[in-house]
Every structure is written in C-alpha cells, then in structure tokens.
Amino acid sequence: MEAADRVLVARDVHVSLNGTPILHGVGIDVSPGEVVALMGGNGSGKSTLVRALVGAIPLAGGSVALFGAPATGSARSRVGYVPQRMSVGGGIAATVDEVVRSGLLGHHRLRAPRDARSRAAQALAQLDIQDLIGRDVSRLSGGQQQRVLIARALVRRPDILLLDEPMAGVDLQSQVAFAHALSHLKEDGVAIIIVLHELGALTRHIDRSVVLEGGRVTHEGAPPQDLGIHALPGHDHEHAHADPQPPTSGGVALDGPA
C-alpha cells in the first residue's frame, strides 16, 4: 500500500518531555481497517508516542502525516483519541452527556452541532452505556469511565482511533463491550492504534504489533504472545517471531459479533 493510502504515517519521531528524550526516531503507520497493537514495558514510550501522534504534545523531530498530508487542525477532526484515564478537571461535576458531547468539537468547530445529543446517545449505545447519559462521570466505576472516554472519541465518527491502554483496570463487562465495538469499527474501515500491556480480550482483532523499548521500535509484525519477554532488555524480537504461531493464550478471547 502506498504511503498516501495509509491513514497515519509517522517517521523518525523524536519527543522530549521536560528536557528528557523519550522517543528516539520512532516510525509507525496504519492502514484503513487495520488494528495495530502498540506494546512494550512500562516507560518504553508507548503513551508518549500516542500523545505525540494525536498532537497532544509537540514533536522534537520527525513528522506525522494523516490521510496523506501533514497533520493539521482539519485532519485532526477525523481522529479519535482515548487517553489512559479520565481527567477529573477541577472538581466541578460533569455529566456523561457533557463529556461525550465535548468530543464533537474541534478545529473551526467551537460549538456542538444541533444533533449533538442524539449522536452522544448513539456513541454511548455502541458501548452499551446509554443508561449512564445523565450521570456524574466522577462517580462512575473505572470501567464505565473508560467506556465514556471511548464514546467521546467515537462520537467524532473518526477514521482513525488511538487508544492508550483502554483495558487497564477495566472489568470484564467493559472489555466485552469494547471488543464488540472494536470489531464493528474494524469492519467499517476505521484504522486503530491501541496501546496494550497484554492482548487479552482483543487477541483476535489485532492485525499487527509494534513493540517499543527505551523509546525505540524493537519489533514490528505478528503480535507477541507474551509481552513479559518483550519487555526484557536484549530480547531478540526479530527471531522470536520469525515463524509466529497463532495466539493460544493471553486471556479470554472475546470475539465481537460478525
């Protein structure tokens, strides 16, 4: 596939946080309908890479292209981003509806569209949490909050979705709901980059994995079955996956509806 056909192409990405270099020339790309798992140990730079790809933090070097062109404000309107945790703001309560509708704003769109309420309800229904619409987000469980964040990204009807550890600390019910939503998105041609510590419920949906270590890509190809090994320094990722076997373990394989 030509680079221009890819949804996202990042080349030689360098990022420093508070003067400390975190990413050292990382490259990653994703095509329509492809699900790429971004893996690696703690501190490997996974979350930093995702934040840099969505424009939440600046690049110290390299480039990010979206839909065949440099990532600009208008291109970002087609991107959905799910951060690792719910921001609690300054303590003023906010309803699920308010949080999800904030996902409808963007470049040159400072006010939500007229059908904002129905679109928010649809996004919540995709994740089976439509009954939470009027609830205070700060009083929801971790799994419910995570689904609200995903709904906030989905309400944008994105062409690419980047998720930072959406399964961390999430209950089984939320994992099942997310796996179902993911399979639908994939069928609809949405490109997905998802940060994971373990494949778990999503094993059957992952097309490719990129493993980071110390801010560099150390493996790209078939999803590793055991990230614990990949997180170890000096692990030979290339040869370990020369002949990848289909995953047989790594959590409950929860398939979405066909």
């Binding site: 424009g55 939440a56 981003y81 996902g103 704003l105 470049h107």
Partner: peptide
C-alpha cells in the same frame, strides 16, 4: 478546562 490534552487532539485552539 475539563481535559486539555484531549481538546488539543481534536484540533481545538
């Protein structure tokens, strides 16, 4: 004010 990082990812100024 609720989530600055997400707001930045959407292209909001």
């Amino acid at each position: 004010t609720h989530d600055q990082e997400f707001a930045r990812s959407t292209g909001l100024p």
